[in-house]
Amino acid sequence: MTDWIVLGLLGALSVASALGLLLSRNAIYAALFLVLNFVVGAVIYIVLNAPFLAVVQISVYAGAIMVLFIFVIMLLGAERLTPAENPPGLSYQRPLAIALGVLALSVAAYVLLARGGEAAATQAVDASPTAIGVQLFRNYVFPFEVVALLLLAAMVGAVVLTRRTE
């Protein structure tokens, strides 16, 4: 029962912070809402037996990525946002988007309620960092290397893009 209370609280907090991101008028606030959402996500990971991912989530997402976001927001001086105002010919954008969102959620709810599975698996798998590391370097070495290359390419790309061409 406590599990359910914890999960419900975390879920509520998560949705609330996401809505905060969606609705806030200030980019800094939006970023902080997102940080909160990521932190809540990390806690849910712990509940779901994924401690390694929880740590990575905090350090990479809430730490590195969001710091980068806030840095850019401040660099550009773009924290104040103009109120949303649809350009002519786009008046259907907002109602259609919301309707589609509701539709998507209804379908998801229908699928989970009508065809939801049985109770969770009985035994928990070993998800310690050691186990994940073994998986990574035993079964996923090639994707791992590819990802390394991808990061390098992204780094070079970012440098090239932001370089001032005189």
Binding site: L48, L53, Y61, A64, L68, Q135, L151
Partner: peptide, 27 residues
């Protein structure tokens, strides 16, 4: 789903998604 099926692959996948997301954010 990783927890549901007691399988680590889901978690490994998340790890990769995070890395790609980091690269994407940089660019």
């Amino acid at each position: 789903f990783a927890q549901r099926w007691a399988h680590l692959t889901g978690q490994v996948f998340v790890f990769f998604v995070m890395t790609v997301a980091a690269a994407e954010v940089a660019v």
